[in-house]
Amino acid sequence: MMLHVTADVLGRYLFNAPLPGTIVVVANYYMIILVFIALGVAEEKRAHISVEFLTDLMSERPRAAFSVLASALTIAVTVILMIAGWSEAMKKTRGGATMEQGSQMIEIWQSYWLIPLGAALMALIAAYRVIATITGAKSGLSETDADVKFIND
């Protein structure tokens, strides 16, 4: 994405020859890949932003209970996202969704499949965490709490 946009800018400025379709490709492919595939990665690393303030004041048991609630809700939401994304991807695939940039047409229906894919991945990881929490097994997920505090503001 970085190189693609830079090439577009340089092409336009230096050679009066922008790369056709950059905007459509960046928005409909790179952004979707980046966000929806990274959802699962962020779930694995517990990088999703939440407010720990109140639960940190609680004792172990209620805290574990709320943690299961959070994971259960995460699973529910991502499964909904997966089903909704799936049905939209079917529609877009049937219609062969495209977008126009300049005088060019660019197919975009493929990128709709990344949403159910990313959502499914995130659901699986959240489900794994619930099971690990309930059974008390040590989860194999690499949670790096210190690093993920590097949320940007």
């Binding site: 994405m1 970085m2 946009v5 905007i23 960046v26 928005a27 409909n28 790179y30 952004m31 979707i32 980046l34 966000v35 929806f36 909904i80 996202l81 089903i83 909704a84 994304g85 049905s87 939209e88 990128s111 709709y112 949403i115 940007n152």
Partner: peptide, 24 residues
């Protein structure tokens, strides 16, 4: 269901928002 199928894709597939990962 319609909202869930449209809005996540349309919101994310934004050219202007693409500057966020780049600045990060």
């Amino acid at each position: 269901w319609g909202s869930m199928s449209i809005i996540p894709y349309k919101f994310t597939s934004s050219w202007i928002l693409s500057s966020i990962p780049m600045f990060l």
